[in-house]
């Protein structure tokens, strides 16, 4: 995937993610509706390729206001990833074309790889994750399961262990997928399914859309460093 195509794909996917989350604020919770209406409009400009660099800079400024408004990210990790995609894409636009611009976009790809690898690393060193106990705890008492019925899964220790290991293994081997284009496509498909499962079971829908917005950076990096 070429740099320009990857950058544009990230912009479009990020704009869609921002429109989705802005709509939830404006029409759903009605919390700070004006603030998020502005973000929605800026995202629409990016989506339709209108004054993109200025709209991206506007979104960056907006992010500072929103971070102050909520004294941090409103939606934890998904907001952080969304803003990381935004900052890297904006820098890739406004910095001089060539190596510097590519470095900004490449930094996003490196962070996406680390988001999976580090998550796997911190789990595999934890005996509770290796035994499935930690996943059982997530279902048993964490605030994440979307319904009370899902908490019953905590009573199936064998299934909890069988579910934990593929996740840990996938997260740890994810970086290797960068070496071969078909492997990366497969890895991103599995990652997408993983985020879908998290959205269905734990209500983390915004993670799906912002992580997908970061994937073009990986497809571009793979073309640069891939062996095959």
């Amino acid at each position: 995937m070429s740099f320009d195509l990857a950058l544009r794909a990230s912009e479009i996917l990020l704009a869609l993610a921002f429109i989705q989350s802005s709509a939830e604020h404006v029409f759903g919770t009605r919390d700070a509706p004006l603030l998020f209406a502005v973000r929605g409009v800026l995202a629409v400009l990016v989506l339709f390729n209108i004054a993109v660099p200025w709209a991206l800079i506007g979104l960056c400024l907006h992010s500072v206001v929103a971070l102050h408004r909520y004294q941090g990210p409103y939606n934890g990790g998904s907001d952080r990833m969304g803003l990381l995609v935004l900052y890297c894409v904006t820098l890739a636009h406004v910095l001089p074309a060539g190596l510097i611009s590519e470095t900004a976009f490449g930094y996003l790809g490196i962070q996406v790889v680390m988001s999976y690898f580090i998550s796997g690393k911190v789990k595999i060193v934890n005996p509770d994750w290796r035994s499935g106990r930690a996943l059982a705890d997530v279902f048993a008492f964490s605030a994440y399961p979307v319904s009370e019925r899902l908490r019953d899964l905590a009573n199936r220790p064998r299934q909890m262990m069988l579910a934990s290991w593929p996740v840990i293994g996938f997260e740890l081997v994810f970086p290797i997928s960068l070496l071969w284009a078909p492997a990366l496509v497969l890895a991103l498909t599995i990652a997408f399914a993983f985020h879908l499962a998290n959205a269905c079971l734990f209500g983390l829908n915004r993670f799906v859309w912002v992580w997908v917005a970061s994937y073009p950076s990986l497809l571009w990096i793979q073309g640069r460093i891939g062996l095959f």
């Binding site: 604020h25 029409f27 209500g203 829908n205």
Partner: peptide
Amino acid sequence: MRLFWNPARNDALF
């Protein structure tokens, strides 16, 4: 459906 529309849940996470 909540993949696309999930405001109450996201506010609960906040």
